[in-house]
Amino acid sequence: MKLYNGPIIIVGLVIFLAIFLLPFYISGGKTAAVPKPELPKKSVATECVMPTEYMRTSHMQLLNVWRDMVVRDGDRIFINEKGKHFNMSLTNTCLSCHDSKAKFCDSCHDYLAVAPVCWECHLVPKEKK
């Protein structure tokens, strides 16, 4: 078997490998620290609108449902499995307990390199000290 255009192919492969392996080189084989989002103090809140396990995996879907309910259907009250009522609002409900976006939302989002566009419009209330 003869390799046509050998040099070009090999140089191309080397360049590809170099680019592909660059992140490993830059991180020096170490992994970034796993984030530990800071939960609200027990005095502020003990329970979220949904179980923690669910919120961890699916909060974005829940927020999408909330968004459509509020904007398109005009329904603003959310009733969870335990029958508790919540005002469906990112700024006024979620962030009133999770009062530090930086320590809660951003810690995971930054780690996973996701940039939710929510904050382009939705305001973050000034953090209480």
Binding site: Y54, T57, V65, G74, R76, I77, F78, I79
Partner: peptide
């Protein structure tokens, strides 16, 4: 997760207007 029904046309979650 057990909550796979979280879509816009789900049946299990409840939303209502403010009374």
């Amino acid at each position: 997760t057990p909550y796979q029904w979280v879509t816009r046309d789900h049946g299990a979650l409840k939303e209502v207007p403010n009374p």
